[in-house]
Amino acid sequence: MPGLTVVFTEWVSKNPPYGLSIYTPEYYQHVLTSVQRVAIAFGLATLLGVPFGLLLGWSRKFKDFVFPVFEILRPIPALAWVPLAILMFKGTESPVIFITFLPAFFATTLNTMLGVHSIDESYIRAAYCLGAKRAQIFRHVVLPGALPFIFTGLQISMGVGWFSLVAGEMISGEYGLGYVIYSGYTLVSYPVIAIGMITLGLVGWISSALVRIVGTSLMQWRVRSLGLGDGS
């Protein structure tokens, strides 16, 4: 194993011996590719998973109909989808995005549904008392009431998204941080592996921080009610 100094020297070297540092354009190419894939997969998972989860939680009939299928597909590990995904989709991009999307979608959907179930029945009753119609209750009670769970789901979604992305990139693709780590492995280049890992840690941390920031800005009521804010 290389020392931390070797890794760090490589990482900030203008002329890196192993060919990867913050001065090489490939480094950014790899980071950008991974970030783009996660962004697309996470975006799709959110766009589809939140409405789907809301529907599952809100409509008994829809849930009875769809949820069993969902529950059978959900436990299949993302990795098990790799061969099928590669055969199903053309090119290298789509299979990787699909593998990233899938567990993110499941996490988002499930948590959103649980979020709807978590809403105290008396809020819904109170809204009916105050003259709200079903659609208004959906908008003013169900959606905001489920929001804390939705954002928990998005955090998990981001986490499992990165996890599956790396797995996908190790198997297929010629760019991305997973690919960097894997090629470091085939070339027995420890510093490259370490740089790939550290970078993943950084972008992973930044991306979940972003989700958290959006979450707290949409849920000021929670921040203030639970005294989580700085009091300003």
């Binding site: 105290d120 009753r125 809204a127 709200a132 905001p144």
Partner: peptide, 30 residues
Amino acid sequence: PGADRIVVFQNGALFPWKTNLENVAFGPIM
């Protein structure tokens, strides 16, 4: 259920995601 008979619940049912003013204004808006 209707606004001519309004329930005040044992554990309270003000919507925590709305301000007090938004809560009070909720009925007539809906």
